[in-house]
Structures are given as C-alpha cells and as structure tokens.
Simulated scan of single mutants.
Amino acid sequence: MPSLYDFEAKTIQDQVFRFADFKGQPFLIVNTARKCGFAGQLNELEVLHQSYKNQGLMIIAFPCNQFGSQEPGSNEEIAQQCEMSFHTTFQMMSKIDVNGATAHPLYQWLTNEAPGLLGSEAIKWNFTKFLVDKSGKVVERFSSMHAPDKLRTPIEKLL
C-alpha cells in the first residue's frame, strides 16, 4: 500500500522533491491560488509554518489553475508574488492539476485516501488541505472553508 513517501514532485524552482527524503515528518499539503478569495490563507499557512517548522511539520503548497483560472502565470511569477505579497517561506511546488485525467499522481493518491464530502474524490476548490502523519498516511482532509489556524490541534497531535 503506497504512502506519501512513494511520491515525487517538482518544486517551483523545477527541482525534484522526494517525499521519501522527509520520512518521519508530518505534512500539510494544500492546493493554492493567489487570485482566490481564500488567498489570505497563504499568510495563515505561513504562520503555521513558523509555529511548527522546528517541530518537523512540512507545509507543501501546490499552485493550481483549475478553479476559476485563479492561479495564472508561470511558476516564476507565482513564486515571486507569494514571497513578496504573502511572505511565504514554506515549500512551494510547480503548478499542477489536482483533478481529472491530468491530475498529479500525488493528488490522485491523496483524494483516494481521503475522499471529500459524500465520498467524492474530486477537489472542490482552492485551499483544500490534507494532513499526513509521520508514517506517510493521510490523517484528514479539510475543505477550503477550514481556516489553517483551526488545524493547530490536529497538527499538534501528529508532532
């Protein structure tokens, strides 16, 4: 049975990111979009990152343009604006699809492991969050409406 540690992805700087290199660490994985009404969650994710990075939490953001075309532009433009406007220092990945035939394999696995409302595997909108434990298993899925600050208790249980 696969775990998070079986996957790789490209960073926003086009480097290979092997999740296996971070075995034993919990992850919060989020699909993001700068032009979304929930974009303020990028700031909230950074607060979580600063609060828990020294305890091992890895926050991984995957920009995605599948919802209302709210993540336009190149990886370089996304990285620059996230750093300048949202002051992000957590790991940003290359822009991907999270739904459909072109969905990144990691997201195919995440949505299968933690279906959403009424068992739907599809990601409904930007800022859907997946919490993964230290063994690489998905613990819980959170909707866009679930503010990052409300994840402190479940995160602390994993640390």
Results as ranks from 00 to 15, higher is better:
residue 4 L to R: 04
residue 7 F to M: 00
residue 9 A to F: 05
residue 11 T to C: 00
residue 11 T to F: 03
residue 11 T to Y: 02
residue 14 D to V: 07
residue 17 F to M: 02
residue 21 D to Q: 09
residue 22 F to L: 01
residue 23 K to Q: 15
residue 27 F to E: 04
residue 29 I to T: 09
residue 30 V to G: 01
residue 31 N to Q: 10
residue 32 T to Y: 06
residue 35 K to W: 04
residue 35 K to M: 13
residue 39 A to D: 12
residue 39 A to N: 14
residue 45 L to R: 06
residue 51 S to I: 06
residue 53 K to V: 14
residue 54 N to I: 12
residue 60 I to C: 02
residue 64 C to N: 09
residue 64 C to P: 05
residue 66 Q to H: 11
residue 67 F to C: 10
residue 68 G to F: 12
residue 71 E to M: 03
residue 73 G to C: 08
residue 75 N to P: 01
residue 76 E to G: 00
residue 77 E to N: 05
residue 80 Q to P: 09
residue 80 Q to W: 01
residue 83 E to I: 07
residue 84 M to L: 14
residue 88 T to H: 00
residue 89 T to Y: 01
residue 96 I to A: 09
residue 96 I to Q: 02
residue 97 D to Q: 11
residue 100 G to V: 13
residue 105 P to T: 11
residue 105 P to I: 08
residue 106 L to V: 05
residue 107 Y to G: 08
residue 109 W to K: 03
residue 109 W to E: 10
residue 110 L to G: 11
residue 113 E to G: 03
residue 115 P to K: 08
residue 116 G to L: 07
residue 118 L to W: 04
residue 119 G to F: 06
residue 121 E to Q: 15
residue 135 S to E: 15
residue 135 S to L: 09
residue 137 K to W: 07
residue 138 V to N: 05
residue 140 E to K: 15
residue 141 R to K: 08
residue 142 F to W: 07
residue 144 S to R: 12
residue 147 A to T: 13
residue 148 P to V: 09
residue 148 P to F: 01
residue 149 D to H: 14
residue 150 K to S: 13
residue 151 L to R: 05
residue 154 P to C: 02
residue 155 I to T: 06
